[in-house]
Write a protein that binds this DNA or RNA. Structure first.
Length: 374
DNA sequence: GCAATTTGACCGAC
DNA sequence: GTCGGTCAAATTGC
């Protein structure tokens, strides 16, 4: 009964949510032309305008939280208790009027929006496995956790063969050639910036190969730890878009990072948002500890995000040629997102006059274009 | 020059 | 023989 009521409420809340988001976008758009002037002459006005934008997004966020908690109410009863409680909003809502809170909230909004269901994670997961209930639970959490890592006790992944079913050719599942410890995770593709870039997982990787895999639409990229030589770090990863949802990267980790154990080793960034851990290794304990992005609150917290922004913005250099962009970790998924968002919001002056469109581009369009290419 | 990516070739597991 | 994983020369941008 109660579930039914919640279900009925969702579309209405969704509508309100969309309306709030649109309102926020509009305010931001209105803000844009005045940005330069106000910045120089009327910083108070600018402050006020920004606060308005923040409030609009806050409003949207609250509605989204409502929707999510409604969904949670529906699924909790059937969802595995191993799923951690949601930690969507680490900050105090009461701060929203303050400037400090405002900018930080805005970042949180941006992050949250990156996780919108429209990215099709749920569809993907439901299609991939028979376990709808569990997968739905996972999907729900993706939103709830605002990009926080979600470790899934994947009960359906008994064997490697089944795992291959997820990652590779449906027609000819191949056994893994090695019995290496593997950890497989799903990450959302960046929605803005370089969407071709594999998701940042807090480590620095160097690409050493790419290969078309039989039965899959998208090539698989091979990365090894940048510090492989320096610290004899054996960690590797494979990144591949999922066939039926290119917005999701499947990342397969092999080997453990030993580089961060060295006192001189470069420290790694806090890990990014992880959609799902679908690792299939029989003995994951070690790999999990070392590789799995940890759901540290700072990842989505204000300070975490702000520091992430700094890290992201100070990247810039390096990165070589061959159309070679920066390595995935220099401008990770989240860093890209925030940096781009900030860029679009405060650095616009672009001809388009619609920064929000660049902030929230239609991912479908992008992928359609990509598929047309191929 | 350096560091990173690209890409065809090679190797080994199946 | 096929295919996935890796190597290494070529290429590119800083």
């Amino acid at each position: 009964m109660a579930n039914q009521k919640n279900q009925n409420n969702i579309p209405e809340t969704m509508e309100e949510f969309m309306s709030s988001i649109k309102h926020g976008c509009e305010l931001a758009r209105n803000l844009e032309p005045e940005l330069v002037n106000n910045m120089a002459n009327q910083p108070d006005m600018l402050l006020f305008s920004i606060d308005e934008v923040v409030r609009a997004f806050n409003d949207a966020k609250e509605r989204l939280v409502m929707m999510i908690s409604q969904k949670q109410g529906q699924t909790m009863a059937t969802t595995s208790s191993s799923l951690t409680p949601p930690m969507l909003l680490p900050h105090d809502e009461s701060q929203s009027g303050q400037m400090m809170g405002a900018s930080a909230h805005f970042m949180d909004h941006l992050f949250l929006m990156q996780q919108q269901p429209q990215f099709g994670v749920r569809g993907l997961l439901e299609n991939k496995s028979g376990s709808d209930v569990q997968q739905y639970g996972v999907t729900r959490q993706i939103g709830e956790m605002g990009g926080k890592n979600v470790e899934v006790s994947d009960k359906s992944k008994g064997s490697e063969g089944e795992m291959q079913g997820i990652e590779a050719s449906p027609s000819r599942p191949r056994k893994s050639r090695k019995n290496d410890m593997e950890k497989i995770m799903l990450f959302p593709a960046p929605q803005v910036g370089n969407t071709e870039m594999p998701p940042d997982d807090g480590f620095t990787w160097r690409k050493y190969g790419q290969k078309e895999i039989l039965g899959t639409k998208y090539p698989r990229a091979y990365y090894r730890c940048t510090h492989q030589k320096l610290y004899a770090c054996p960690a590797k990863k494979q990144v591949q878009r999922l066939d039926d949802n290119p917005n999701i990267f499947q990342v397969k980790y092999r080997g453990e990072h030993t580089c961060h154990m060295s006192s001189t080793a470069p420290s790694s960034f806090p890990p990014p948002q992880l959609l799902v851990d679908i690792s299939n290794s029989k003995d994951m304990t070690q790999t999990q500890t070392n590789i799995s992005p940890q759901p540290s609150p700072s990842t989505t917290s204000v300070s975490g995000w702000l520091s992430t922004v700094n890290l992201g913005l100070q990247g810039g250099g390096g990165g070589g040629g061959g159309g070679a962009g920066p390595s995935s970790s220099k401008y990770g998924t989240d860093q890209y997102f925030v940096a781009d968002m900030a860029d679009a919001m405060f650095n616009s002056g672009s001809s388009s006059g619609n920064s929000m469109e660049s902030l929230f581009p239609s991912t479908e369009d992008k992928w359609e274009a990509a598929e047309k290419k191929s």
